[in-house]
Design a protein around this nucleic acid. Structure first.
Length: 940
RNA sequence: GGGCAUUUAGCUCAGCUGGUUCAGAGCGUUCGCCUCACACGCGAAAGGUCACAGGUUCGAAUCCUGUAAUGCCCACCA
């Protein structure tokens, strides 16, 4: 027997209990068809189409923030929805080792103990990180559970699992064999803080106030008394120590005569040539560019073209090295000062201007990134990008919102090679071994590398590359490595490609684009389910729909950040408002493609709504008991008889909104019954459409309005006077709980069980979603009911202005405007009850009752009079004011309408229905105005 | 420098394919209510030249073109 429900919804206990029950009943577990044969419930067809999401793996070091809360709620909603829609729904969870983030974190921790990673050495350091991972790595996972995430936890993956490691290495080796991975000396982004290379994507460019320095470089062979100079402009004076030339544009007449001559590089006293290169912009600065191949990517290219030396003047910490002469040992910023000062002393500084330019900073450490010449590993991206771009442009993968396709295309067409080596320890170590001869052997393991070496005739010792791979080199394999790639596992064959990906647009390049490339590149080796080769793009891509979720900001529109202290902890919100409330509120606030301005108080939307639902159910339970007492033979779903029914019969009974209601609707249904059925099916239909369009906030709005406005405000009031509608009200509520379950799983599961008395092992989360019955969408009924609502609202307004106590009954007269008397009659009880009438009279005609005795209100289709006993002069005055204001409004509308109707263009070209409506409207306004005038007259 | 978005009630935002769900919701405010589910509630009200300027159209918050403000992304001009 269900216990009576508490007066208000208290989420905490309910949530914990149901989450455990779901897990105990394996609700979240997805199986392949042959595994489903053993499914104890036996309620499902065996061969269900899969619906798959792989989670964007949070960092192991991570803790749940609002962005996670939103993103994972979205994923959970879709997984739960599809589970109810009859799919084998799989949400695969996991975490990312987050090479640089994690290592930075641990090193910071160690610094507090006065240790660096070098004190420990590689092995001990890694041990420490693993310890940390074992200890704290599950925090984020447990937080996802608190959010209600219905992940298949058995399948939890970590990007450094042994099997995952194999996938990463396999992918590396394959790309290397194809010639798409190479090692080269390039200018890369160097993070002096992390002591590592970074990819272009890990560098944030910010407008930075700096200076533009103009330096004079003396020309060799100038006359002593009038030395000739060339003036160059630079923003980074310290790099001049590594200058190897000065370049001018070949078409620049100012400098043509100087080409081929040599300059003396000040401070270093080195002779450097003047060269020509088309890269140089004549208009910028002086038209002369100093060339520092080791410290600027453009200069590097120019250096290659002109066969110039590369002089690296900095060490990995951003400190000037021995190539910087006497500046060696100075930090890069100190060196800058020093260089400028010394040049000033020599009179070689022409001028210094303020200059704002874009400077790269490390995404992670925040420090200024140094363009740095070093040996790194790269992936050639162009060949991978081409089919990946096609997949999106042809719509095989769809982005929501679609506009991100532009961004994607832009990046893909201008894609550059990906620097994948990191001078870190935490991560996948690069599977390359160096011979003493300098040769490099890449293999899946040392043995394989050794074998290759032997083949090449080398038998000496091998040293593995000390570097690890960029985190994203493992992450881009996520949609298939998690299923066992490179092995053609049954899971991989069954569940790939996944269905949707939900993620932030900020990682569209880091991750989304690269996963698409990786899928297309690596999946052809896995056959399709029927054993045929996987060749079509649609079978290779990692997912079909990509949803880019909102960015959450604070009320001032700032990004949420720990340092600003404006980042609420989702778990605190959950504790305070309940998981369902937080989920619902976030989605309610999240229009597609828009940022969210979030304030904690917003959670009240969801909390209040959950509570409303709770109380509506409480009320229904009460009413149902009453009804059962008076109608002992009534069968309510799931009780008694249904418990004994077979699984199949139960199945057939499930689509209640569509089937069982039809009985009620056709035979004894009242106007209100038809109306609520119509509204319910309309809501169900619109919800499905909104889900399909990925407009989840629309889903929440539809359901919120339907439940609160239609069902609670009107229908629950109506069943108080129409007890025969109670069974329908019960079923509508049951449908509401189904419709809401993906979004608010806890409260709906709890209430559904209270309502149906199903045993705990029968779960709403495993049951069917509502299939709308469009045949029940009844415009006529909705229109008719609108008349009733109008009448009730008019009465309420009059009562309110008359200051009639709600408890006080009053005599009411309603005049229909138009042929709607029968409609009014059909809703008589409703008007009576909701208007709290002592007597209610419908009368045709336009009799004016004295404004002294009656308060009145005129609406489009009704005019109502409410009897008053006596009114003070003051109240009369107020009433007059109200009426004249109303009259003003109506007159304005007449004016507007007149303008339209006297416009020949409108009469000629507007479609007939529009014209008709306008005429009706006009008539209606005129009669309204007349009535109002009459009332006003009476009151004076 | 290029691209994308946003600008509607005091606040946060709906308003998809131009014409009675086109000026809306929630919060806040004001008034009245412990009306036998809910004060996390019920009923009612006040509040907006729909950023600005043009244009298209019989008709524009809605379509087009500019302008301004704000935000985001991309870009090797020293």
């Amino acid at each position: 027997m269900p216990e009576p429900l508490a007066k208000a919804y208290v989420p905490n206990a309910v949530e914990k209990r149901w989450y455990e029950t779901w897990e105990k009943n394996h609700l979240f577990n997805a199986n392949r068809p042959e595994q489903n044969a053993q499914d104890a419930t036996g309620r499902r067809a065996l061969d269900k189409p899969p619906f798959v999401i792989v989670i964007p793996p949070p960092n192991v070091t991570g803790i749940l923030h609002m962005g996670h809360a939103l993103n994972n709620t979205i994923q959970d909603v879709y997984v739960r929805l599809h589970r109810m829609l009859g799919h084998e729904a799989l949400w695969l969870p996991g975490t990312d080792h987050a090479s640089i983030a994690t290592q930075t974190k641990i090193e910071r921790e160690m610094r507090a103990e006065g240790l660096t990673r070098h004190d420990l050495g590689r092995e001990k350091f890694l041990e420490r990180v693993w310890e940390w991972k074992e200890k704290y790595g599950d925090i984020i996972i447990s937080q996802l559970r608190a959010l209600g995430c219905s992940c298949d936890w058995r399948r939890t993956r970590f990007t450094m699992d042994p099997a995952y490691y194999e996938a990463v290495i396999e992918a590396f080796v394959r790309l290397h064999e194809k010639g798409l991975i190479y090692r080269g000396k390039r200018i890369i982004n160097w993070s002096p803080l992390a002591q590592s290379a970074l990819s272009d994507e890990e560098v944030i460019h910010k407008e930075t106030d700096g200076k533009l320095y103009y330096f004079k470089y003396p020309i060799v062979g100038s006359h002593g008394d009038q030395p000739e100079y060339i003036t160059i402009a630079t923003t980074r004076p310290e790099t001049m120590l590594g200058d190897v030339a000065v370049a001018v544009n070949p078409d620049d007449d100012r400098y043509k005569r100087l080409v081929g001559r040599m300059l003396i590089l000040p401070l270093m006293n080195r002779e450097i040539p003047i060269i020509m290169d088309g890269y140089v912009d004549k208009e910028f600065g002086t038209g002369c560019v100093k060339i520092t191949p080791a410290h600027d990517p453009n200069d590097f290219e120019i250096g290659l073209r002109h066969d110039l030396p590369q002089i690296n003047v900095m060490d990995t910490h951003g400190v000037i090295n021995e190539n910087g002469g006497r500046f060696a040992g100075l930090d890069r910023f100190d060196a800058r000062k020093q260089v400028v000062e010394e040049l000033q002393l020599l009179g070689l500084v022409e001028k210094i201007e303020n200059y704002t330019h874009s400077v790269g900073y490390s995404e992670r450490g925040g420090e200024m990134v140094e363009p740095y010449l070093s040996d790194q590993w790269f992936i050639s991206m162009k060949p991978l990008a081409e089919p990946a771009l096609r997949a999106v442009e042809e719509g095989i993968i769809q982005f929501h919102p679609e506009r991100w396709v532009n961004t994607y295309r832009h990046w893909m067409t201008g894609i550059r090679d990906w620097c994948i080596s990191r001078q870190l320890w935490w991560g996948h170590r690069i599977p390359a071994w160096y011979a003493e001869t300098g040769e490099i052997f890449v293999g899946r393991n040392e043995d394989e590398a050794r074998a290759k070496a032997k083949e090449a005739g080398y038998n000496g010792s091998l040293q593995q590359d000390p570097d690890v791979l960029d985190t994203w080199v493992s992450a881009w394999l996520w949609p298939f490595a998690t299923f066992g790639w490179p092995n053609a596992t049954p899971d991989l064959i069954e569940f790939y490609p996944t269905s949707m990906l939900s993620t932030g647009a900020d990682i569209i390049f880091f991750w989304v684009a690269r996963m698409i490339m990786a899928g297309i590149e690596f999946m052809p080796s896995i056959p399709l389910k029927d054993g045929s080769p996987r060749t079509k793009l649609r079978d290779l891509i990692p997912f079909r729909d990509v949803y880019f979720h909102n960015i959450i900001r604070d009320q001032q529109g700032r990004k949420l950040s720990k340092s600003l202290g404006n980042s609420p902890d989702p778990l605190d919100l959950i504790a305070k408002y309940g998981t369902d409330a937080v989920r619902f509120s976030l989605l309610y606030l999240a229009p597609m493609g828009q940022d969210i301005r979030f304030a904690e108080a917003s959670c009240e939307i969801g909390r209040n709504f959950a509570n409303k639902l709770w109380n509506a159910t409480r009320f229904i339970l009460m009413k149902r008991d009453e009804y059962k007492t008076s109608h002992p033979k009534t069968e309510f779903e799931s009780e008694d008889t249904e418990l004994m029914a077979s699984g199949e019969q139960r199945m057939a009974n499930k689509k209640r909104l569509a089937t069982r209601h039809s009985l009620l609707a056709t035979e004894n249904a009242t106007l209100a019954d038809k109306w609520i059925l119509s509204r319910a099916n309309r809501a169900a239909r619109d919800v499905r459409a909104a889900f399909d369009r990925y407009e989840i906030n629309e889903v929440t709005k539809i359901l919120y309005d339907f439940v609160w406005r239609d069902y609670c405000d009107w229908y629950l009031e109506i069943i108080k006077i129409q007890p025969d509608s109670i069974p329908l009200a019960v079923e509508i509520l049951e449908g509401i709980l189904r419709l809401l379950h993906p979004i608010m799983p806890f409260v709906t599961e709890e209430l559904w069980h209270a309502l149906t008395s199903e045993p705990e092992s029968v779960l709403l989360g495993r049951d069917d979603y509502i299939t709308p019955d469009e045949g029940k969408i009844d415009d006529e009924a909705e229109n008719a009911f609108l008349v009733i609502q109008e009448a009730v609202e008019a009465v309420r307004l009059v009562r309110s202005t008359l200051k009639l106590a709600p408890s006080k009954q009053a005599e009411i007269i309603v005049q229909p405007r138009g042929k709607i008397l029968d409609v009014l009659e059909s809703g008589k009880g409703i008007v009576e009850r909701l208007g709290n009438a002592s007597s209610l009279k419908f009368e045709e005609g336009t009799v004016d009752y004295s404004s002294k005795e009656y308060g009145s209100e005129i609406r489009a289709r009704v005019r109502v009079f409410v009897k008053i006993e006596n009114r003070s002069p003051e109240e009369q005055k107020k009433e007059r004011e109200r009426i004249s204001k109303e009259l003003e409004r109506v007159l304005a509308q007449i004016e507007q309408s007149n303008a339209k109707l006297s416009n020949p263009g409108f009469l000629e070209r507007a479609p007939v229905p529009v014209l008709e409506k306008e005429r009706e409207k006009h008539q209606s306004y005129i009669s309204q105005a007349e009535k109002l005038q009459a009332s006003l007259f009476e009151l004076t």
